[in-house]
Design a protein around this nucleic acid. Structure first.
Ligand SMILES: [Mn+2]
Ligand SMILES: [Mn+2]
Ligand SMILES: [Zn+2]
Ligand SMILES: [Zn+2]
Lengths: 143, 143
DNA sequence: TCATAAATAGAAATGATTTCTATTTATACC
DNA sequence: GGTATAAATAGAAATCATTTCTATTTATGA
């Protein structure tokens, strides 16, 4: 029941080979309650692996993201960050622009919930991003 | 009462010099009901200006954004897009991933509003991004 | 053990964005 | 209408996060 066993199963289920580096990457991500850039993860992992390519970290994080294991954080600096959230079910995140900590939110609406959010995180809400993506009527028709 | 007069005043009020390129840039942005990359705007503007540097377009769009005249669109491809929305007041946008059209939304909550949004845009909602930014308790205290 | 496809390292390329510097331009004032 | 001045700009170059490439290594299942 050590975490490694869980990661092992996780990778297996995704049809990915269970490599020491992948296990370590998952471990690093789960320990951090913050979103990290691939380079930051790479720096942490290099302590344990004498040889480790940065592209490997990029590739693995992208892979895990596309399988829904970790999620991208949209940052206004347009750099790549990922966060591993163990909580399941639809929810949103409060992300600190300063220390990059991530906290789960139980609310989904925003404007009318700002007070509630402030109480929950005991911090300051400076802004929020709400963008709805999809296909407009025209494009949905064509495709 | 031509648009140029309005842009002229707009730039003046921001303390920016009224250059032909800035006026043309604003014009291009207002005509499009879609979000555009600086390079796309540059290509459009080059029709009217024999010499026009791409950095000039980047600089001006950034300037306008920081003054709140246009807004950045967070795209999952992490490229830079801007959109000029004439509507005032707090509201959100529906952005098409295919043709990049932008439509104003009158709703602010999401999950419980998806049906309503679908009706409004007459298209398909594939995902939404809701991220709350701020400073966590610790960081808010320190700063 | 072995064959095989997947994963990886390390070097190199990419390309959007930014920086730099000399030149041009808008503007305020006369 | 000139003129001084700071702001804006062009064009070239640099940056640098991210991606691509290729030869080598590794995990896996038979
Ligand atoms: Mn979460
Ligand atoms: Mn709008
Ligand atoms: Zn913080
Ligand atoms: Zn569309």
């Amino acid at each position: 029941m050590e975490p490694n066993t869980a990661y092992h199963a996780l990778l297996k289920n995704l049809g990915l080979k269970v490599t020491p580096k992948r296990l370590a990457l998952l471990s690093v991500l789960e320990e951090e309650h913050r979103y990290l850039s691939p380079e930051e993860v790479w720096k942490k992992l290099r302590r344990s692996f004498k040889s480790l390519g940065l592209p490997t970290v990029y590739r693995n994080m992208e892979e895990l993201e596309c399988h829904g294991v970790i999620s991208k954080v949209l940052h206004s600096n347009r750099k790549l960050y990922y966060y591993f959230c163990p909580k399941t079910g639809h929810h949103h995140h409060f992300v600190c622009m300063e220390c990059r900590i991530v906290e789960d939110l139980s609310v989904c609406a925003v404007r009318e919930m700002e007070k509630e959010i402030k109480r929950q995180v005991n911090g300051t809400v400076t802004s929020h991003i709400l963008q709805v993506n999809g296909l407009c009527g025209n494009c949905a028709e064509k495709l």
